[in-house]
Design a protein around this nucleic acid. Structure first.
Lengths: 190, 190
DNA sequence: TTTCTTTCTTACCAAATGTGAACGGATTTG
DNA sequence: CAAATCCGTTCACATTTGGTAAGAAAGAAA
């Protein structure tokens, strides 16, 4: 799992073997079973995690139904920064849609890592801004595309996810009802 | 204008008079006329700015029409972090909806400020995450509320902005057409 | 002022999406 | 295995939103 992580972060910045060894010391292997939470509503987030395998979903609740905000598969980082860095109770849930294997990094260890090698702070900024961009793009899509256009865009950009996420979650993520998504799928084409 | 800034940041963290004086040295007063850009498409952002007065809008283009992503009034920070910190050309525009008076902070000066007083980095993180939260909330609203609900929520949460932004921008921001917004306003109530 | 332009409103019809219900298949549970 | 639940699909109908067009209202420019 560490190897996966290394090859990912080398794409962002160059890290020496010492840097890598240092980071590895602060990581803890863990797993999360399907449907279990990485972070539940009201909890304070004390970890971020690199996903070795599996798939997670950030979501909010509205009238009792879960509204996905983001999907995070293997090879990416899982975090709810607002709660993690400000220590506030989460207004969002993060749960596993599949069994997951992860590498946890606690807030305390992150601080130690930053002290030992400040370079890693750039990595954090990078991922923060990446997730910011992703989210901004999703807002823009919701504001300016039709349901059908959003679905085809999703299919085009995340073909690797389309069959791993229940359709009612995809529908909610796209801002439409499951029945409408069914209709769109039936009609086909754009 | 500095006084405004000081009272704002004191709400986030406590800064000494020395800290404040230090920061003041790195800021430059400037103004932006209505409809001028703070950041244009394709440009790399080299500044963030504190807004003393006026109102700005982040927006994207879709089929030639401007889709607002966020509105930023006096007392808040104006920035497009993705371009600013990664040095990439902006895929977003930021322009003044009203004449603005601002305090600019260049990327270079920000680095100097962080070196002189690392405490300011926390301020940056704070505002980054705040804008992240704001944006995530907007996505969720677009995904789970109807046009009418989004309009009334906007009115309720930003009554100070409702009369300062042209309605066709508000409509686009809410993901509906100006005609639909007119209709919603006419029908009244929820 | 008058003219010109932009913004907002209204109306009518078309298209997209929501709602409630029913059905079948798949999966889970006992 | 049977029973129960969950999920995806389909349908008929209601509601919302979009598209086009025209005109009123408000601002800006001459």
């Amino acid at each position: 799992m560490i190897q996966q992580l290394i090859s990912k972060i080398q794409l962002v910045d160059k890290f020496s073997n010492d840097d890598i060894d240092l980071m590895a010391k602060y990581l803890t292997e863990d797993s999360i079973a399907k449907n279990d939470h990485f972070l539940n509503f009201g909890e304070v987030s004390h970890h971020v995690a690199f996903i070795g395998s599996g798939l997670a979903m950030h979501y909010r609740l509205h009238d009792g139904i879960e509204i996905p905000v983001d999907f995070t598969p293997e090879g990416e980082w899982l975090a709810y920064l607002t709660s993690f860095s400000q220590g506030t109770p989460s207004d969002m849930g993060i749960k596993a849609l599949e069994d997951m294997r992860i590498l946890r990094l606690s807030a305390a260890n992150m601080q130690l890592l930053f002290q030992a090698q400040p370079k890693f702070m750039a990595l954090r900024s990078f991922y923060t801004e990446l997730s910011f961009m992703t989210n901004a793009q999703h807002s823009a899509d919701l504001a300016m595309l039709s349901g059908k256009e959003r679905y085809y865009k999703f299919m085009k950009e995340k073909p690797h996810l389309i069959n791993r996420i229940p359709q009612y979650y995809i529908a909610s993520y796209l801002g439409i009802k499951p029945q409408s998504l069914s209709r769109i799928r039936k009609e086909g084409q754009l």
